[in-house]
Write a protein that binds this DNA or RNA. Structure first.
Length: 375
DNA sequence: AACACCTTCAACCGCCTTATA
DNA sequence: GTATAAGGCGGTTGAAGGTGT
């Protein structure tokens, strides 16, 4: 990984490793001269050390040497510090090890929801200026925040199939993730559990459902056309869990409840969890179940499904025809395809919510899922 | 158990900025 | 004003550990 060739390449480009003795003047004080002599000695020693510099992971012994030296002499002048401490490392390497790992006040471990929220907020303000962001998170290093962003946040952008710098992703972050995080923080402060809330009805997830697995081959219709043996699917990352609604249930209310004491499934990450569901109360609220073909999703006029990224509302007679061959499609595909329309405009609806909806079509089972991504 | 794949994060690279003479 | 050294920063890498098959 850390070959000598890369070392030499780096040193060749280095801005500060060439001789500086020609810059001395005769007007320097004796103190300055001592400093200069020390610097020259350091420099010479560093040139020798270049050939046997250590790279890669730090050992406990090296950590101890660096920590002890800094506790006795303080930080700064990293190149000479490295030599004085007896470390065969570059000054840069020592500095990085100290600032990112050994420093006593460095905080490590899980990024809290509060910190996540702050990172999202600050990133929207400063962009990839990690050190700037780190200034607002005591104990957190720019490196850690950068890693968090790349491994967690960008992962979710990938899941959404959009670029992390795209408007869609930024809007999703601001309109969906950040409010959800704020809710979680508030819930934690209140001592209540976070809940999965149906964005349309405001009902909360019923934790008493029977999630006993149902065979994948079961031919059922999730859109409310079948009255029996209906199945619910909950997505947890890539693992699907199925839930069977009690036979006695005549409506979808067994999936959603008004109770505020129910608890949502555990989040699959610090940032978010996904939930697949299908339209709640669909059957009971539709004018006629027989109108639900595999192409058209009709739902009650008093319900509005809003795109959080555009603020547009989904047409009630939206036509899904032509998407059956795609396992997963996104709203922007609907829009660009032109076979469906979004109506309304941003912020025009008082019933607009901040949920992000995705659609999953399983042609083999004739099932339409709506995915509400919750954060 | 073994292997493949995925995720995390410490450490490095290279460029830019700042400090110093 | 210029040259050089050092510090700082964002991007990238790859080893290590975790997870799935």
């Amino acid at each position: 990984m850390y070959s000598s060739s890369t070392t030499m390449n780096n040193n060749r480009r280095s801005t500060g490793d060439s001789s500086s003795s020609s810059t001395m003047t005769t007007t320097q004080s004796s103190s300055d001269n001592e400093d200069m002599m020390m610097a020259m000695e350091d420099h010479e020693q560093q040139q020798e050390d270049l050939h046997d510099l250590r790279r890669g992971p730090w050992t406990d012994e090296e950590d101890l040497l660096l920590t002890n030296y800094i506790s006795n002499h303080g930080e700064g002048r990293w190149n000479s510090l490295a030599h004085a401490a007896g470390l065969k490392r570059t000054g840069k390497s020592c500095r990085l090890r100290w600032l990112n790992y050994l420093r006593p006040d460095v905080r490590r471990g899980n990024i809290t929801p509060e910190e996540q929220l702050m990172i999202l907020e600050l990133h929207s303000q400063f962009g990839n200026r990690w050190s700037k962001i780190a200034q607002y998170l005591p104990g957190r290093t720019d490196n850690e925040i950068k890693n968090y962003w790349r491994t967690r946040v960008q992962k979710h952008a990938k899941q959404l199939r959009c670029d992390v710098n795209s408007k869609l992703f930024k809007d999703t972050m601001r309109n969906v993730w950040m409010p959800r995080l704020a809710e979680r923080i508030q819930a934690a402060a209140d001592g209540t559990s976070p809940q999965t809330t149906n964005a349309i009805t405001g009902h909360h997830f019923n934790n008493n459902l029977d999630f006993t697995s149902v065979a994948e081959s079961t031919n059922i219709n999730e859109m409310g056309m079948s009255n029996t043996n209906r199945r619910r699917s909950i997505k947890s990352e890539d693992n699907y869990i199925t839930a069977k609604v009690p036979a006695s249930s005549s409506t979808a209310d067994s999936l959603w409840t008004n109770s505020v004491t129910t608890q949502a499934p555990s989040p699959v990450s610090d940032l978010t969890y996904d939930q697949y569901q299908y339209y709640p109360n669909f059957e009971s609220n539709c004018e006629s179940t027989t109108t639900q073909t595999s192409d058209t999703m009709n739902y009650p006029a008093d319900y509005i499904m809003t795109s959080p990224s555009t603020g547009y509302n989904l047409n009630h007679d939206f036509n899904f025809q032509g998407y059956t061959t795609s396992s997963s499609v996104h709203e922007q595909q609907y829009m660009s395809n032109g076979s469906g329309n979004w109506s309304g405009s941003s912020n025009s609806s008082t019933t607009q919510d901040n949920s992000l909806w995705d659609y999953l079509w399983n042609p083999n089972q004739d099932i339409m899922f709506l995915q509400q991504q919750q954060f």
